[in-house]
């Protein structure tokens, strides 16, 4: 979901995605950047993202990923599911505030 959200902003390559997730979550979600790749592979296999070889900002060959239509739909599904979960958890934690 995080990867899909990142790609929703525009095509990016693996290095960028890893950094963007790291920065956006204010380094809370620190993962080994390598473990990103199996996840990318899986997403691509499900045709939620597509990839192409391109040139990076500093003129290096890099594999770029972009969101497909299916991926965009999936992002919607996942986001709403996540929001439902968050709402539910919040309600359990702070029932009085409602």
């Amino acid at each position: 979901m995080l990867i899909l959200q990142t790609l929703a902003l525009g095509p990016a390559h693996g290095h960028t995605i890893a950094h963007v997730i790291g920065l956006r979550s204010e380094d809370v979600l620190q993962v080994e950047h390598g473990s990103l790749y199996p996840a990318l592979h899986r997403l691509e296999d499900r045709s939620w993202i597509a990839s192409f070889w391109g040139t990076s900002e500093n003129n290096r060959k890099a594999r770029y990923y972009r969101l497909t239509q299916a991926g965009r739909r999936q992002l919607g599904v996942e986001t709403s599911r996540w929001e439902r979960v968050v709402r539910a958890v919040n309600q359990v934690l702070r029932p009085a505030e409602e």
Partner: peptide, 13 residues
Amino acid sequence: ERANEIESYLEIE
């Protein structure tokens, strides 16, 4: 493909 891609990550980093 993936090997190349990892290579490119390492280069960029």
